[in-house]
């Protein structure tokens, strides 16, 4: 990130090459539309270029900063699209299966397997609200309405689910680059 802040184009290109697949997968999961997801992906890396000197390595790793930024921009775009007319959800789920072999090979599948295994071990009542919050950008109140569950119950399940997820991923931070 220091090299990017020093206007090193190659450093940005390397960061893009390293994280493009995971970030684009995340944005496709959120937006379900290739054109929109690519547009947001471009915005994210341009923002990284323009604000790299704002990155504080004492506050977290580049992975967390980049993913948090990407998700935030993705949710912002999702809400913008929703105000027009949301992209068809069915199409989104189908599109998200379009993974190239090259992408799969390049991606650190072991790490993905760890997260998916951990998520799979969560009860649906905990996993569901977490996924709605993370990938659909819903608040706890919106999730409660969506699921027809009491708000207090949703809050407890989300908190418990995230605590369990953290416990299951404990010690994996270095290998994830978190």
């Amino acid at each position: 990130m220091k090299a990017i802040a020093a206007r090193d184009e190659m450093a940005l290109a390397q960061l893009y090459d390293r994280y493009r697949v995971i970030l684009f997968g995340l944005l496709m999961r959120i937006l379900g539309n290739r054109e929109e997801a690519e547009d947001v992906l471009q915005e994210v890396f341009l923002q990284v270029w323009r604000k790299a000197d704002d990155f504080d390595e004492t506050r977290g790793r580049p992975f967390t900063w980049l993913v948090t930024l990407g998700r935030s921009r993705g949710i912002d775009r999702l809400r913008t699209l929703a105000s027009r007319e949301r992209v068809a959800e069915a199409g989104a789920r189908e599109a998200s299966e379009e993974v190239s072999d090259a992408a799969s090979d390049a991606f650190r599948s072991e790490q993905r397997g760890l997260v998916n295994t951990a998520l799979a071990q969560l009860p649906d009542e905990q996993k569901g609200p977490l996924m709605l919050a993370y990938f659909d950008g819903l608040t706890q109140s919106e999730i409660a309405t969506h699921l027809g569950a009491p708000l207090g119950t949703v809050k407890t399940r989300m908190r418990t689910g995230l605590i369990r997820l953290r416990e299951m991923l404990a010690g994996q931070g270095e290998s994830f680059g978190f």
């Binding site: 684009f24 496709m28 993370y134």
Partner: peptide
Amino acid sequence: WEATAAAMAVSANPMEPSPKVRERIL
């Protein structure tokens, strides 16, 4: 907690964007 939340991004299917995105950014 933000680091834990960020891990959830990894659960999304990895996907390859068009090479044009890289060109546009650079």
